[in-house]
């Protein structure tokens, strides 16, 4: 890793020290945006207004800002057209009846309001990218649409590091999107993927974005996730991955998102730095909170196997199998059952 990159990662990890300066910076950035751009921003912030449910925010954003049709949105979220149409109608009605204004948030509320917008975009992206039912075209498009809108938002709010971080994160995922599945639609794990087929140009661009965002000195969860994805994307091989750096980044991410899933991911990084025993100890602390999360059980199975506790492996794998419907993931688990 280059010195510049390392410094960028240090800045990102430095915590929330610079958060207080946010409102000042926001005031100067929002003044630069004019006319039609203002209009687009107002629309995005109205669709993602916190008085609407997350589901409604997502549906409305895809409909009104990206311009997808109601049937397209319904397909992407695996719901019926009638359900989706009703969701959109209700959201529009709430905007009118509750008096949700069509306006750009003030500088002092922009931080909070932007959180909602980023969450909506990330959710839409993940819905397309993770595509629980495999790489179907309709859903891949959704990930690309969400990335497109995030890029637009980045142009409208060029000094918002979290927006830059989100775009970089999406681009890093998309750079290896097609390499994740084999011809039969089976999942290929990161460590087994053909890195030569990743989109190197997109990875370079996204890594530069992570660095640029870090210069704004306002770290946040999307920048940190992008930095983690960049560490993976830039590693020449699985064995040469900078796990120590990834572990530090996950620890910083925990400050913003102290969720069990982030702790699980951190434990996986810890496995590569401090060994399977240390990682398994971390996992023990998550047993209750993640008891219904298949990746908890499949990770646990892997660690038990590494530690030679083979007799405990089948139960963990079985539990993981019970908890996922995703055919690609199920196939992978069944292979591990041997």
């Amino acid at each position: 890793m280059t010195t510049a990159r390392r410094k960028a990662l240090d800045r990102l990890r430095r915590g929330k020290t610079y958060m207080e300066k946010l409102s000042l910076l926001v005031a100067s950035s929002s003044n630069e945006v004019r006319g039609e751009q203002d209009d687009r921003l107002r629309l995005i912030f109205t669709c993602c207004h916190p008085a609407l449910s997350r589901e409604a925010q997502v549906a409305l954003t895809l409909r009104a800002v990206i311009g997808l049709t109601t049937p397209e949105i319904a397909r992407a979220f695996l719901t019926s057209e009638a359900t989706m149409a009703q969701r959109i109608v209700r959201a529009k009605r709430k905007i009118v009846e509750a008096g949700i204004p069509y306006r750009m948030p003030d500088a002092d509320e922009l931080n909070d309001r932007l959180d909602d917008v980023l969450a909506v975009l990330y959710l839409a992206f993940n819905e397309g990218y993770l595509a629980t039912s495999g790489p179907s075209p309709a859903r891949r498009d959704l990930a690309e649409d969400a990335c497109w809108l995030s890029t637009l938002l980045m142009r409208l709010l060029p000094n918002e590091p979290e927006v830059i971080g989100l775009v970089a994160l999406m681009q890093l995922h998309l750079a290896r999107a097609t390499v994740r599945f084999d011809r039969a639609g089976g999942l290929i794990l990161l460590k087994d993927q053909d890195r030569g087929r990743w989109d190197q140009q997109a990875i370079r661009e996204a890594s530069a974005m992570v660095e640029r965002a870090s210069w704004l000195r306002r770290p946040g969860p999307y920048q940190l996730q992008a930095a983690i994805a960049a560490c993976h994307a830039e590693a020449p091989s699985w064995a040469e991955t900078d796990w120590a750096q990834i572990l530090l980044l996950y620890s910083s991410l925990l400050v913003f998102w102290p969720t069990p899933v982030v702790r699980l991911n951190r434990a996986i990084a810890l496995r590569h730095v401090a060994g399977a025993e240390a990682a398994l100890t971390e996992l023990q602390g998550l047993a209750v909170e993640l008891k219904d999360y298949h990746l908890y059980h499949s990770t646990r199975a892997q660690l038990l196997r590494e530690l030679g506790r083979e007799s405990e492996v089948p139960a963990a794998l079985n539990r993981a199998l019970e908890l996922t419907d995703n055919p690609a993931e199920r196939a992978l688990l069944q292979r591990r059952m041997g």
Partner: peptide, 9 residues
């Protein structure tokens, strides 16, 4: 008030 945002504030 003018709108929901003012009420929320």
């Amino acid at each position: 008030v003018a709108n929901l945002d003012e009420a929320i504030a």
